[in-house]
Nucleic acid binder design. Sequence first.
DNA 1: AGCAGAGTGTGATGGCGGTCACGAATCTAA
DNA 2: TTAGATTCGTGACCGCCATCACACTCTGCT
Lengths: 240, 240
Amino acid sequence: MLSPYGIEIVESCLTCKLRADRVFCDLPPSSLQSFQNIKYTTAYPEGAVLFVEGQEPRGIFVVCKGSVKLSISAANGKTVIVKIVEPGEVLGLSATVSGRPYEATAETIDPCLVNFVKREDFLRFLKEDVQVCFKVAEQLSEKYHNACNEVRSLGLSHSAAEKLARLLLEWSSKNGDSTKPEVRLKLKLTHEEIAQMIGTSRETVTRLFADMKKRQIVQSKGSTLVIRNAAALRGMASQN
Amino acid sequence: MLSPYGIEIVESCLTCKLRADRVFCDLPPSSLQSFQNIKYTTAYPEGAVLFVEGQEPRGIFVVCKGSVKLSISAANGKTVIVKIVEPGEVLGLSATVSGRPYEATAETIDPCLVNFVKREDFLRFLKEDVQVCFKVAEQLSEKYHNACNEVRSLGLSHSAAEKLARLLLEWSSKNGDSTKPEVRLKLKLTHEEIAQMIGTSRETVTRLFADMKKRQIVQSKGSTLVIRNAAALRGMASQN
DNA sequence: AGCAGAGTGTGATGGCGGTCACGAATCTAA
DNA sequence: TTAGATTCGTGACCGCCATCACACTCTGCT
């Protein structure tokens, strides 16, 4: 079955091939069945907004496929991208648990498959099962951890170059091919968005990339970025 | 009974007069009794380090009395103060739940009374009681919320002035005397530490204070700061 | 093909704030 | 009281990067 946006819809969490080690998906069958009963599966196109910073929490969103941009913005229009959420992660968890407004805005950056659970259903689900509740606590810890990294990156660095280097290293470590000396990255974000991730301006990002190309540290073909000299990047990232 | 550092030790959580609405203390008597059995109460002097960023998680610390400085630091020696923790809050929760190293360093800034619970005991305690587990999830949400605010403050502002104004407003709103036009604050932190909270240099903080005094926005007597013109502060904080 | 519209490259300019350097003031300990 | 250590106040300098302005390149679209 094909959804409107060319994604294959997964009917049941119990038989889902995507599961693997996704944090929220490896529950015992009985819990998974309860989850199955309260979730709504939806497909979204690129650019869809799941929720907006400041909204009352409607519930949680589990990303099954695709990636979602989480951003925080200020009165003056400036925006910080907090995280790019990958499949298996949960969105709106903290807001849903605590009842506070959503902390950030979630927008899909490619076609996505998402499971939604209404707040009341989710809270009931939590309180019925310690195991689930503990999983949630773990996920929240994870989120806190990420936020701390964000604080570190924003607060402890100086040159924008440093932050960009760090970001590239993070991305390349996620793409796991540490066997090869050269890592290839598909850049899904524009310079503008990268700038928002590291708290600088678009022009600076462009200039930094130009500089790195000149110094043979990276190299780009279309939207693919090749890291030729990871050591140099680490040098830029670590200090000064 | 007096502890080494002049703090009255509270023997039992069940009869503790400090409890009130402290998040972690208002459990049903049965849970509180279990907690009572696994906690160790300790008094610390000013400047004691409860744990250090990067350490394996030994367990959680509940602050009963006094305040604790939570900071994150970088290789280059720079430090960001993430939060000043007040009584009733829990430290090391995220690390203890997830098993990751502590995110930050915790250091007392005055004599403190602290309950410690070993990781294994705490995890058992959690898994025995959904209610407790849910409370922990709430606390973690709270922490995540704070971290997000930190990100907002570090990432979305430009002038250091803006950040300082925001910090002062936050402090004055915590000191609650919103009835009076003038708010008095006891500054427990040095300029250096304030600088670390807003991600700037000590000299800048000093200069900003000097400027604010000149403009009649604040006024200081010893370690007491009087806010004479909160409106102007809000103006500085909001935009620009 | 050809035209938006988004995204990218690059120069010029100016200001914020980091850093250094030192002296004044306040606190702490014998 | 005096010595020493923190903390605070302030000037001088200068580098990073935000901002503005505009040209160029690459999409997709009809």
